[in-house]
Every structure is written in C-alpha cells, then in structure tokens.
C-alpha cells in the first residue's frame, strides 16, 4: 500500500481516510461531510474535489446522486476582497 495518505481536498488537506470514516460513521450527505471535515471548504470553493466527495458518499452508502447539485454553490464563487464586494475595482 501507499506510504503517503491520499489527500482528496487539496485546499484543506483532507484525506480519503477522514472522509471515508466520516461517511461510515454518520451515513451522511456531501454537505455533512463538508461541514464535519472541511473537505470542499477551501480556497477553490470545492470546485476541484466536489465530484470525488459526491462519488465517495454514493459508493459508501450515503446519499445517492439526484438531480439536485449535492454541494450547493454560494456566492461569491470566487474569493474576493471586502473592497471588491463593496464595489471597489480590483
């Protein structure tokens, strides 16, 4: 087996093991995995790892894939400064 852990969420460095344990313990949705582990909560907004988290949740007996987007997208979809939010130009 591998010596290094398999990181799933690069931004927060959350491993496959942590996510797997969380799903097995709580039989939870992608959103709950995110809230419990921080996977998908980093700088990229979950853009990189969300599909992997969804697949793990489905394969490990959590929620099945539906027409709803499992991890909801919330604005801002890019990290922006308070200045930009307040209307300043970057």
């Amino acid at each position: 087996m591998s010596e290094k852990p398999t990181i799933v969420c690069r931004c927060e460095e959350i491993t496959m093991e942590e996510i797997q344990e969380t799903i097995e313990q709580f039989h939870c949705s992608s959103r709950e995995v995110k809230l419990r582990t921080r996977a998908g909560m980093g700088s990229c907004g979950g853009r990189t790892c969300r599909s992997v988290i969804d697949r793990l949740v489905e394969e490990l007996g959590g929620a099945t894939v539906s027409n709803e987007v499992p991890l909801s997208y919330r604005p801002p979809v890019r990290p922006v400064s308070f200045g930009v939010l307040g209307g300043a130009k970057e």
Binding site: S2, T6, I7, V8, M16, C49, S51, V52
Partner: peptide, 12 residues
C-alpha cells in the same frame, strides 16, 4: 467545464 480529479497519493 472543469476537470475531474483522480486523487492519488502525492498528487499535491
């Protein structure tokens, strides 16, 4: 589109 990752030990 965005690319789907395949997490592998060492991929960071």
């Amino acid at each position: 589109a965005s690319e789907t990752p395949i997490p592998i030990p060492g991929w960071t």
